[in-house]
Write a protein that binds this DNA or RNA. Structure first.
Lengths: 328, 328
DNA sequence: ATGAAAGCGCTAACAT
DNA sequence: ATGTTAGCGCTTTCAT
């Protein structure tokens, strides 16, 4: 492997000049520039990125922690993040935590070992205390999931409002017995339940505790929930869910059991993923501006990188809306 | 940021000893080991990965080129790749080419700048000649997509057989007029068409050229294809597709147009993604052992890394099978 | 078992 | 406009 030294010799110049050419510095004569380029080509020279990183103390890389890529929500979010990152010459290091606390901690290590310049959480596994420890290690942003104790910037959607609107939509369609199936493990989940209950209370309805499912997250979870509901004495007539996957699972199971949707049970999803339009009936859902959230997040990250002092807490909230289709 | 030097001073030892502790070398007395660990903890020391990489000339990182993560096929493939990689202490750098030749070339650069130790293609945008150039830059493997001229190891599925089986399945269900909608841009596509035609010929059927669609890849493409078919005078009674997404698009559009599936038109997908079970009718499809393909690929990569001379061509083919559901 | 010293490949301050 | 030089933080021979 050719080094910068080799190129310098070959071009009959100093390492500095070669370095200047590589980094597009001004004040290099055209003549020598050409000499350098020729030498680089002949020697098939490519700068060693580890050396560059060591020297400059920058990696131009941002870590993005996601629970798993097989949940389509996250690829779409990454799409937004990457769009802005690439524009400014940054690359993403995508890290799947698989919902594992220890893995998450290991990824935080990337910041400490200077393998990345900044880190973005899109889901959070560990306690806030644990994560707060890393504040000094470099710019960190919470995107999508959040913690109110957070002292990092947060880019998120107004989950309370989202689930409030979704639930109100169900109520306006005449439903009075509504189940909640959104998850409450995270603060995001708690807020969703909050919005849900806000709508419920506003219309003086009641929620039976057995209609509240706080763990579901997948297609299979959705299926299971519907099976549980079907054996209840007093059944809800509508279900609010925390993702299109859960909703899809419910609908799928309903077909298997011969339960009519939305006549017997209405279902509302969350996310507006491609699957929402493909299901039969098509899925009424709550659209999150995922890509925009990604873009906004990366913009905040870049500004933190440019202005290291400006990492105070700030909360950016994006709008959310109900997309009415056939499942309600 | 504390450096190894700081730790050495603090522990009253040399940098070498600290380094030995970090890297779990033998022949360090327990006493000094403890001294080092204490110092590391007090100083919150974390080794700088750029320095380590520069020194060792290794990154323990493998680049994985995918067209896009929003196509669920690739997250599942990554699942398999990552499982093995993590086991052996490697991390993945996931790179989306977005089907862009230039981006693909830029990612190949990662190998030249020593930012990764090896690189895996899961799709190929550039000419083979162009890619062949990079052979000397480090271990490269083709996974999923392939080129017969390839001089790198290839891990793939038997596409000819897959589409042959799928098509035969349609024929055995009584179809004689079958459309092909699989893509032919890549060699993978060509092989699929080959398998398709093999089955067609075996049963002495005919394929009208207007029934052959070589470009489709997405849900929207599938919709478009069905619209085009519906305005034909002589319509096929079955469609072979190159992905569950395309098939899903066709089914969706069929509903919109009031076309009955499978009665008026049968559809077979490719991949067996979660969506295949959610559609109504459920999707008959060709299952690819995606995760296994990822695992196998990473095993080959690791063996290349351990044995740099062993990067000769080898082709590993995995089995494929038809999953019969309702859409045929 | 431990330390001294060289050097991985690069950039940037300083000097000219 | 170009060159000289120091040093980023680490590992690894070599010596003891």
């Amino acid at each position: 492997m050719a080094t910068i030294e080799d190129v310098a010799k070959r071009a009959g110049l100093s390492r500095s000049t070669v370095s200047r050419v590589i980094n597009h510095h001004p004040y290099v004569s055209e003549k020598k520039k050409k000499l350098v380029y020729d030498a680089m080509k002949e020697l098939e020279y490519h700068p060693n990125s580890s050396a560059q990183r060591l020297r400059t103390q920058k990696t131009d890389t941002i870590a993005v922690l996601v629970p798993r890529l097989t949940n389509p929500f996250f690829p779409f979010l990454i799409e937004g993040l990457e769009m802005i990152a690439v524009e400014y010459g940054f690359q993403l290091l995508i890290c799947q935590t698989h919902q594992d606390k220890e893995k998450e901690l290991n990824f935080l290590n990337l910041l400490q070992t200077k393998q990345v310049d900044g880190l973005i959480f899109t889901s959070i596994e560990n306690d806030w205390e644990t994560i707060a420890t890393y504040k000094e290690c470099g710019p960190i942003i919470l995107c999508n999931e959040y913690r109110s104790e957070a002292t990092f910037p947060v880019v998120r959607l107004d989950q309370v409002k989202g689930s409030y609107l979704g639930t109100r939509h169900l109520i306006e369609k005449g439903h009075k017995k509504i189940a909640y199936c959104g998850g409450t493990a995270s603060e995001l989940g708690i807020d969703r339940e909050k919005g849900f209950r806000k709508a419920i209370n506003e219309f003086s309805l009641e929620v039976r505790e057995e209609w509240v499912f706080r763990d579901p997250y997948s297609i299979d979870c959705g299926k299971r929930v519907l099976r549980e509901i079907q054996v209840m004495e007093d059944r809800p007539t509508a279900i609010f869910t925390g993702s299109d996957e859960i909703a899809a699972g419910i609908i799928k199971q309903a077909k298997t059991l011969g339960v009519k949707i939305p006549e017997e049970i209405a279902v509302i999803g969350f996310d507006d993923q491609p699957i929402a339009e493909l299901m039969e009936p098509t899925l009424t859902t709550i659209r999150q501006p995922i890509k925009e959230m990604g873009q906004k997040t990366m913009e905040v990250m870049l500004s933190m990188l440019n202005n290291p002092s400006g990492n105070e807490k700030q909360i950016i909230e994006l709008p959310i809306q109900v997309i009415s289709r056939e499942s309600v």
